[in-house]
Design a protein around this nucleic acid. Sequence first.
DNA 1: AGCACGATTAACT
DNA 2: GTTAATCGTGCTC
Length: 200
Amino acid sequence: MTDRLSDSFFARDTVLVARELVGKRLVHLDGGGRISGIITETEAYRGEEDLACHCRAGRTPRTAVMYGPPGRAYVYFVYGKHWLLNIVTEKEGYPGAVLIRALAPEEGLDIIARRRNGKHQKQWTNGPAKLCQALGIDGKVNGMNTCSANTVLFIETGTEIHSTLIRKTPRIGLDTVPEPWRSKPWRFFYPGPNQPHSAR
DNA sequence: AGCACGATTAACT
DNA sequence: GTTAATCGTGCTC
């Protein structure tokens, strides 16, 4: 129940990994303790042909980690203020990653509350940048191997969520991305309490 | 060297 | 519903 996911879990099709990551537990060892939550929303980005994927521009300094071994963290900075966390997928050499978009907080609630100061609990980790702020994830962990023995960032088996309870929709925030990529149903989420409904 | 823009969020009206 | 914030990245000149 507390097993960590190994690189063989991530070395598969990105869309499948995105679906199966819903229900798993993301853990950051930070400040001497565990800060964690159950993953409730993900999105898949894979291949240079996916015009929503950063790798549409090929291998660059930023995207190099997506071409690397599976299980690495790909953390990038957007809009001048936000960090977003992905886990690299696919076999080394083929670019892919799963964006972690939302969590249900489990451990380290006091630290999460402090970092998300002034917000209600429902707003703690219900967005990709919010959960990074809550768990203390930023560019320092970019490229980190989440499957190594001494890592401070990893994913555990978590809770089993029946596949019929997981919904899928197009990915969020791709207003300028051409079809068919804009409409690919590569967003997965578990519509529980504290989590999104059908869309945003 | 300069420029346009983004896998978002929070604070507005 | 609308919009400012704010800067790294990748592209053009």
